[in-house]
Design a protein around this nucleic acid. Structure first.
Lengths: 200, 200, 200, 200
DNA sequence: GATGAATGAGCATTCATTCAT
DNA sequence: CATGAATGAATGCTCATTCAT
């Protein structure tokens, strides 16, 4: 009793999060305009009015997902803020750890990532904000003399964001490369460059 | 030519390219789904059936613009293919020249760039293809010993594409930075990295 | 009574009349189609199924309110039926008393009045019925020779109803004029007309 | 050719006014909320998008009809403004003429009348405005000494509007009484009252 | 070369109403 | 006595697309 047929109890919240999950996947796969409410509810085994029981409208769900992504992303970025005064030799691993955490988050939330990082109109803002945080981080290390003085931190930050976005799409989400591996590659690239130094 | 008052012959092509131009701007600004044929033709001073005189449908115009972008982009990439056997010291400038050319093209074709690089579903393919070309280039230089042997050229190529995309959006198209300047920044970053070498 | 903590028995009736009251106000203010069950129950601090515990459906509540109006109105009209054989000079006051009673009823039941007199489809019937009763009344007085023989009582009755409706809406319900004052005005107007008799 | 199949030429205006006419009838018979766009276009032999070719939305058509009613009504009321300084004996006929014109207009535009006088939210405003115009008229005649000095012209004007509305609904639109006859009845009633004067 | 007029197909949203508890 | 959760059934509106001229 209460096992068969209509679910009871916390069924409301369950329906809501089910819809939210399906919506996320649908938006991520099909994009905003090709995602139909009718499809979402069908996949959830519900009907259209139920959707509007939990969400104001199509746009509202999308925004909720974007918000979710933003919140999670920035709480993560917050926590991976570099402590100042670390060992010079520890810096690469610090950065790697931060990047790994971020890529892990993306890998664990592929739909949310596609939405918040690629599809949303606010994706641009989010990335800009992310770049700003990275800029902050880099500036500190800059002051500690870890980086070459000619480096334009803003450019580096934006570049890092660009790299992350691209590698998320081409390597991470398709499952070609793991978070840690990507983090390694990026750190190596950005810290040391590619040019051979043996005969500079 | 123009026997009957109204110009004939040329008028058709003129209308077509007018529509194409307006469509490009509209798609670039509003995105595919928010761009309405009715708006395009209104801005062109024409009517909807006229649109269908020149284009099969909405999707076809969009594809035509994407194609245009792709063609132009790859003819450019083709021409900036690095000659092998250049001086080691000339390499950075070679690369800068190539990037500058590319950024110049983007700057001169902002709408097309937004469409082909950001909006189109095929944007992914285009960027992948671009990355493949860059990979080719890098591999040669690799063989010539210009780069550190540990470098993963594919990752570098994808990263470069990511950086380009991001800097196009945040610096180039808003007019904040010029092609050459961006090219310089990127080359410096990718070739030499950011880490201070004074006490390596 | 109320064995189990929550009051029983009375609570039901209380909920019902609460809903009815709120419904009346809502219908009166917003009209039938702009009144939502969801709004009514929200204002009553109840839920939608509870509404259906007490009323068959939306239409039924509305009808109940109309019925209420009709019943009250006609019991009133009944009681103010003119006794025949009154003094000629007492007639105006008799009529005034009847009208005053009616306007008082309207003033005390503004929502019900708006519903039954203005909004309901049956409002037309109600007014027609009211006109019929007035016609009856007038006819008697006609036979008693109180009125000019050329008077078309039906027209007078309908006119009176029209006047009442209009003055209820414009003067009574907004609180601009009191029942007795309105009754006076109407009796003066209808009995004596407006034209100056000094030089007839 | 041009007789069969789709009509050509001024077909646009024809479709528009056809839709407008049908909408008027539909609104008048069924009320705003029971009138469906789908019904209107079906009756017009057209499809829904065509409706939106000519009208912004459902509300806009309704408003257009209300506007039409208002405009026509007040241009009529304007033209039947009483000339001052007429013969005392000519007054009744003057007023009758004005009322007859108005009733004729209502009779000729039954749907518009139902909409603008009864259904529209603005119906109240329209009637108030009409009452104001009548008040103006009456005031002039008051100054000329035609009416009893105790008369409250505003009340008379509102009453007249109430009478008109009621008789339009019960006598004119059902075809029971003609404009002129109604005008006569009203003038007799309002000017002279109903009470017998033979033995005052 | 161009247009006035029209439509097929679809989609988000709303609301009264009900089931199971 | 009351509710959490859900739905059937509409309906307004939009947009790309086309026909006939």
């Amino acid at each position: 009793m209460g096992q068969r047929g209509r679910k009871v109890g916390a069924s409301g919240e369950r329906s809501r999060s089910l819809l939210l999950q399906i919506a996320a996947d649908q938006f991520a796969q099909e994009g905003y305009y090709n995602t139909k409410i009718s499809t979402i509810v069908k996949k959830a085994g519900l009907t259209q009015p139920t959707f509007y029981l939990y969400f104001q409208n199509k746009d509202a769900v999308f925004q909720e997902l974007v918000s979710l992504f933003r919140t999670k992303l920035f709480s993560l970025a917050e926590s991976s803020r570099l402590e100042s005064g670390i060992e010079r030799s520890a810096l690469p691993n610090q950065i790697k750890a931060g990047l790994t955490a971020m890529f892990s988050f993306f890998a664990e939330n592929p739909s949310l990532t596609r939405i918040g990082l690629l599809q949303a109109t606010e994706a641009e803002n989010i990335k800009t904000e992310l770049a700003a945080q990275i800029t902050d981080n880099l500036r500190k290390e800059m002051q500690d003399g870890y980086f070459q003085p000619t480096v334009d931190v803003k450019i580096v930050a934006e570049s890092l964001v660009g790299i992350m976005e691209r590698l998320v799409v081409t390597k991470l989400l398709p499952g070609i490369q793991k978070p840690e591996s990507l983090a390694n590659d990026i750190v190596d690239l950005l810290l040391y460059g590619i040019i051979s130094k043996n005969n500079g």
